[in-house]
Amino acid sequence: MNALEVVDVKKTYKDKVAGRPVEALKGVSFSIKPGGIFGLLGPNGAGKTTLIASITTLEEPSSGDIRVFGDSVLSHPLKTKMKVGVVHQEVINTGFFSVSEILDFQSGYYGIYKNKERCDYLMQKLSLYEHRHKKVKQLSGGMKRRLMIAKALVHSPKLLLLDEPTAGVDVGLRESLWKFVYELKNEGVSILLTTHYLEEAEQMCEQVAIINKGELLYNGTPKNMIADYSQKKMILTMKNGNVHQFTESQKLGISDVLAKHHVDINQIQDIKIEEGRLEDAFSKMVAL
């Protein structure tokens, strides 16, 4: 059974922007196998947050269906919500309560009464324990984001949705955050994340989907995406001092490229190859 199935989801916002309704999602379909990290990538305004909001039922899709471990979020929301944890892109700023009170309430929302052990564990893990008596407004931006992550995990969800979890988090913390995400993955949590740091996505995700303007452009492994959409650069320094530069499909091997450009192998002094990157593939795809 898939952890998440998104089936032809369309979403049109009724509030008009510039005189017409916004089609934020134009029929997106993909699925996520359990226990992996899935990257949902796309430029600003692509529809990522809208899709996440549809999974958590904050927004209702105009058509299509979304299933979490086999249950539709539209017809069985109480069942699917129990299995989902979400870290919103925008920080939730609960003014009245302290960090530990917030986690306590959050546990209660999922029907868990005494959840101190889990909450303490999460606060330790996310370096929030010494700040547990502070109110949200007394936290720094990065701490707030970590609090949001702790909140999403109080009920040990099987599917975790992370909408730009590393925005505004410093380098050191980003690393420990990703380590934590890996740990969760190893515990069997399925993770969907969005990020604008494509390098992170390339390292972290087994699968990526690219959306742009509400349409799914690609769904597969980062490796295949690089192979399909990016190019490698080959810089040849010849024995006579000439330098040749070829930019070719990632799929061609070195000898293919040399043959294509009729280069005499014996005349080569040095070869330098720059492999394609997810970022290049992404830029190329989104610009199309």
Binding site: T56, T57, L58, P77, L78, K79, K81, M82, V84, V86, H88, I92, T94, Q106, Y109, Y110, G111, K151
Partner: peptide, 8 residues
């Protein structure tokens, strides 16, 4: 949003 996302 927290409340709306939770199974309530």
């Amino acid at each position: 949003e927290d409340i709306r996302v939770a199974p309530i």
